[in-house]
Computed example of a mutant assay.
Amino acid sequence: MHPTDQPLAGKVALVAGATRGAGRAIAVELGRSGAQVYCTGRSTRGNPSDYDRPETIEGTAERVTDAGGTGIAVAVDHTDIWQVKALITRIEEEHGRLDILVNDIGGEPYVKFEIPLWQYPFEQGMKLFNTGFTTHLITSHCALGLLTRSPEALIVEVTDGTRRYNASHYRSTVFLDITKTAVDRLAFAQGHEVAPHGGTAVCVSPGWLRSEMMLDAFEVTEDTWRQAAEANRGTQDAVPPYEFVISETPAMLARGIAALAADPHRSQWNTQSLSSFDLAQHYGVTDTDGSQPDSWSFITAMETQPAEELDVTAYRQPHQRPGPAASS
């Protein structure tokens, strides 16, 4: 492999929440670019988390190594500050540096939709908040001392929804709304603190992510999802809903983040909110099928026009944006 094919060779990355979905894909793409990637999470072989899923951090680390990087699986509960401190100490002892931090823990299995605050089971709501936000805060708190020693440190906070979209849209429940917007604000705040050290912090959001969990929830596969969604055009409460046609694999976001990490001018994005589509357009990357799904524009357009009347192909074409910008 030519050295230019691995622009992150020699870099050390930590992907918190690398077990599955976007976190797994991001870890793999960073590895493909040559990085050494610590892949953390709670699900290990023989000891799954309460998500009760088959994916494991060992499986992710193996994919990172197969892609050309070095994958290192470490079982960590990021709600436990002492476990996170031990992780950062290990990284410092083994490498003496940390260049890239990706906070991708989301807590989606703890979401209960359309339930008002006074009826929401408080313990479950706080579990969502602590898993989806406090983990990010703890990990950054522990990692930034080491990370800011790198002259080109990058922090990526992964959330659901761009800053512009979330600013004008209520996200179904108080706990979900606050969790996802707090992650974005954390990126904004961190950007101000790391900038004097040469660092960059951004918040990123995929569109409608076709993760392993989402495919299973809709009882479709990567081979059948499009046909199943198309078959439900104009049908109310169908599974999967027709608008699933705008979904994307975790690869598009991951490719965009890897390109961002390799960009010597990444500081132009400091404190900003970016969608997977924003990154894809700027860096010229695509999803696995060669398209660039613009989910947030499609979702916004659905507010004034039925999804089945929208030309979904126009929202999947590279270098086209039929709706308003969804970032910033």
Rank of each mutant, 00 (worst) to 15 (best):
Q236M: 09
Q236Y: 08
Q236F: 11
Q236N: 11
D237P: 01
D237F: 15
D237A: 12
D237I: 09
D237L: 14
D237C: 05
A238K: 03
A238G: 04
A238F: 02
A238V: 05
V239T: 14
V239N: 12
V239M: 12
P240M: 08
P240A: 04
P240Y: 04
P241A: 10
P241Y: 08
Y242A: 06
Y242R: 02
Y242E: 02
Y242G: 00
E243D: 14
E243V: 03
E243T: 03
E243Y: 14
E243M: 07
E243A: 04
F244Q: 08
F244G: 00
V245K: 05
V245G: 01
I246N: 00
I246Q: 08
I246P: 00
I246F: 01
S247V: 03
E248C: 00
E248S: 12
E248H: 01
T249P: 00
T249W: 03
P250A: 02
A251Q: 12
A251N: 11
M252Y: 04
M252C: 07
M252E: 06
M252Q: 14
L253G: 01
R255P: 06
R255Y: 06
G256M: 03
I257T: 10
I257E: 07
I257K: 12
A258P: 04
A258C: 10
A258K: 13
A259L: 07
A259N: 07
A259P: 03
L260K: 10
L260A: 05
L260W: 14
L260N: 11
A262K: 14
A262I: 15
D263R: 13
D263I: 09
P264H: 13
P264R: 11
H265Q: 15
H265I: 00
H265C: 12
R266W: 07
R266G: 06
R266I: 04
R266C: 08
S267D: 04
S267V: 11
S267Q: 13
S267L: 07
Q268D: 14
Q268R: 15
Q268S: 12
Q268Y: 06
Q268I: 13
Q268N: 09
W269M: 13
W269Y: 15
W269K: 05
W269R: 07
W269I: 02
N270Q: 08
N270D: 08
N270M: 04
T271C: 15
T271W: 09
T271N: 11
Q272P: 00
S273K: 01
S273H: 02
S273E: 02
